[in-house]
Design a protein around this nucleic acid. Structure first.
Lengths: 164, 164
DNA sequence: TTCTCTTTTAGACATTTGTCTAGTATAAAG
DNA sequence: CTTTATACTAGACAAATGTCTAAAAGAGAA
């Protein structure tokens, strides 16, 4: 039910206004989730290989996506359509448990992330990323990391020069 | 499998350090999710009647809670233990679908909320709450609303006086 | 009513963060 | 090698937000 889909740099996986009917597992590459606001990109997240892919709201509620997802470099995602997902869920009982586990893990991750945005300062969030997800720092351009941390590139640069 | 549990004002539903083995549905009342940082409460969320209750990370991963959940007024929650939840999931196929729906809805909600924290200014978040969740404004003390919005009470006061 | 406790507002000032701009470095392209 | 584009850093200033403090306004309790 899964199918490997390849993307070249700057290809769109999801476009604003179009319903995203696929989820998947990122085999290679780096994908940027963002919205356009006042003509500017605001990055929500950048996900990398060996993580799950989905434009959550659009995929789950089958409504037009509010966000874009774009390949930052060439990459590939093992994709499953919503139709096939439903089919697997109905036909294979164990797959339901797998899907539940996936949803639970996503929920925990995003809940923790939301806490950090409210509870921690930008500097603390950067330090946490530094210790917990150092691989992101090596792979993801700083301008996007800044947005993920909820600050401008200018400010992230300040934080980095202060810490170093 | 559900059991109505009553709480008096300032009772703890979940305490930091203790694993929370229940989830539920809030029948009445108002419950504050927060962490203590540098001796101060940082509110993540306040949930009210007719919504689901769970200290997500602790309940799902069965680890000690990082947060407190406290009743802000007298209230009651229809609670189900993790043990009973597992039992229902195993014995009633349709319950699995219900649980999947619950997880999906939670994921969408928290994803949108995280976007707002990154993409919108504090003022925009307040205005959004004003139009989308006006009932929260009437029920939840401003000091907690401020924390949910990711700002200090002082600043929320400024935003309110500016908008009015 | 009066008293006390809690919530909300707000002034003054400090800190954080954003905007605008430019410079430097690095890498890719011709 | 030169040229161009992109990423990163940083100065100067402005705007947003936090801290500290106090006063006003409400809500209960005696």
């Amino acid at each position: 039910a899964f199918e490997l889909q390849k993307f070249k740099k700057n290809d769109f996986v999801v476009e604003e206004g179009k319903t995203s009917r696929f989820m998947g597992f990122i085999e290679t590459g780096m994908f940027q989730y963002y919205v356009i606001q006042d003509g500017e990109e605001r990055t929500n997240y950048v996900s990398i290989e060996n993580t799950f892919f989905a434009s959550v709201l659009s995929f789950i509620s089958e409504t037009p996506s509010l966000e874009y997802v774009k390949a930052l470099v060439d990459g590939s995602i093992s994709m499953i359509s919503k139709t096939n997902l439903k089919m697997l869920l109905n036909e294979i009982p164990a797959f339901k448990d797998f899907y539940i586990g996936l949803l639970e893990a996503s929920l925990c991750g995003i809940d923790a992330s939301r806490y950090d945005l409210i509870v921690l300062t930008a500097e603390q969030r950067y330090e946490k990323m530094l210790t917990n997800e150092p691989h992101l720092l090596q792979q993801i351009p700083l301008q996007h990391l800044a947005s993920m941390l909820g600050v401008t590139p200018r400010h992230l640069s300040r934080i980095r020069s202060k810490i170093r």
